[in-house]
């Protein structure tokens, strides 16, 4: 049941990510709502589900972005898996811990992306991209992330699926 709820939330995140969020960029840095939801699934669902949600969320992001299909799917799959694996080793209800986790997940996302970029594309503007998009984006995500965790939890608590 919880997987269904979070699946619905992930769909909502995909819709928002592909419609409204591009307008809410701070300079070059944008909010990665799907990444935040994937981290959330990692903290509150099983490893398999978190990995699967990571893959599906990333795949949807890939389809609506102009980059290579599978790049986000790969990075979000790894993030979902690693977050879920770490879940028992951290105090996940702490806001600061949540912010750090989202920050690290964004950085890891950037690393995987850079590797894919360097492998499949010949241009080498990755360094500049890091300082203008990835690092500011990581801060942006880590600030918004804990707040979104709070909202998702509230939605989970107040929504009931009827059989």
């Amino acid at each position: 049941m919880r997987g269904l709820k979070i699946g619905a939330i992930l769909c909502g995140a995909i819709i928002l990510q592909t419609t409204v969020l591009p307008y809410l960029r701070i300079k070059e840095a944008g909010l990665d709502l799907i990444l935040i939801v994937v981290v959330y699934t990692g903290l509150y669902l099983s490893i398999s589900r978190a990995t699967l949600f990571g893959f599906l969320g990333g795949l949807a992001e890939d389809i609506f972005s102009g980059f290579l299909l599978g790049s986000n799917a790969l990075s979000k799959t790894v993030i979902g898996f690693l977050t879920a694996s770490l879940e028992r080793k951290i105090y996940k209800e702490n806001f600061i811990m949540q912010a750090i986790l989202v920050f690290l997940a964004t950085i890891l996302n950037g690393i995987i992306f850079s590797l894919i970029f360097l492998t499949f594309r010949t241009q080498s503007s990755v360094g500049k991209h890091w300082w203008t998009v990835n690092v500011p984006g990581a801060f942006y995500n880590s600030v918004v992330g804990p707040l979104l965790f709070f909202i998702i939890k509230w939605i989970e608590r107040h929504s009931r699926f009827r059989k």
Partner: peptide, 19 residues
């Protein structure tokens, strides 16, 4: 869980190559 991860990574990489 490891198998799930590997399958999904395999699928992602395949999609990357195909695209």
């Amino acid at each position: 869980e490891i198998i799930t991860l590997l399958i999904l990574i395999f699928l992602s990489v395949n999609l990357l190559i195909a695209d």
